[in-house]
């Protein structure tokens, strides 16, 4: 089986009828897709297959041979978040974080198809994702902020190390070193 995962071509030895979720988590060590209900009901295992959000727990590896798979690891990194990631950060659109990769990927794909979704469209698009912490309010706020482009520079740079953390002027003042 061959897959392009987050821009890197991979040759996989996971059995063809095993799930894409297991191949990503167990063979490639990409753990952002979560093994939630593993029945397609919760949305936590969502990945983008050729740009479309799909349940990796219900997807046999053989069905996506040759496809391109994207997980949140490819969207951004600490200090350089994608606008959707930054909006979730800025609007406090997560608590425990288990459902977050699924929500972020589904939102990313939705905004690529429809840059200006209505509130009803957002609810309909994301209704298959279950969140048990936030009550969804701030998740919807994050999606709306991302759609409006209402994301601050500071949020895009969240998680950065170095000067943005207000590092001291002198690293070790008084040190003989």
């Amino acid at each position: 089986m061959r897959l392009t995962v987050n821009g890197i071509e991979r040759e996989l030895s996971t059995r063809p009828l095993d799930t894409l979720l297991n191949a990503l988590r167990e063979e490639l060590g990409i753990t952002s897709p979560k093994a939630g209900c593993q029945q397609g009901g919760c949305g936590a295992c969502t990945v983008l297959i050729d740009g479309e959000p799909r349940r990796s727990c219900l997807t046999p590896l053989v069905a996506v041979d040759g496809a391109t798979v994207t997980t949140v690891e490819a969207l951004g990194e600490p200090g350089n978040l994608s606008p959707v990631q930054a909006a979730f950060y800025e609007q406090y659109g997560l608590q425990c974080g288990f459902c977050t990769p699924g929500f972020v990927l589904a939102t990313t794909a939705m905004l690529e198809r429809n840059a200006n979704p209505s509130r009803e469209q957002i609810l309909e698009e994301l209704v298959g994702h279950v969140c048990r912490c936030t009550g969804y309010v701030k998740i919807v706020a994050a999606v709306e902020a991302a759609a409006r482009g209402d994301v601050s520079e500071a949020a895009l740079e969240a998680g950065a190390t170095g000067p943005s953390r207000r590092e001291p002027e002198v690293l070790v003042p008084g040190s003989p070193a």
Binding site: Q38, Q39, L123, V127, H129, G135, V137
Partner: peptide
């Protein structure tokens, strides 16, 4: 036995808060 048999609130149930 089914995840779907235990119903948790979804975005459909979101009331005004």
């Amino acid at each position: 036995e089914q995840f779907g048999a235990y119903l948790a609130p979804t975005l459909e149930d979101l009331p005004d808060l």
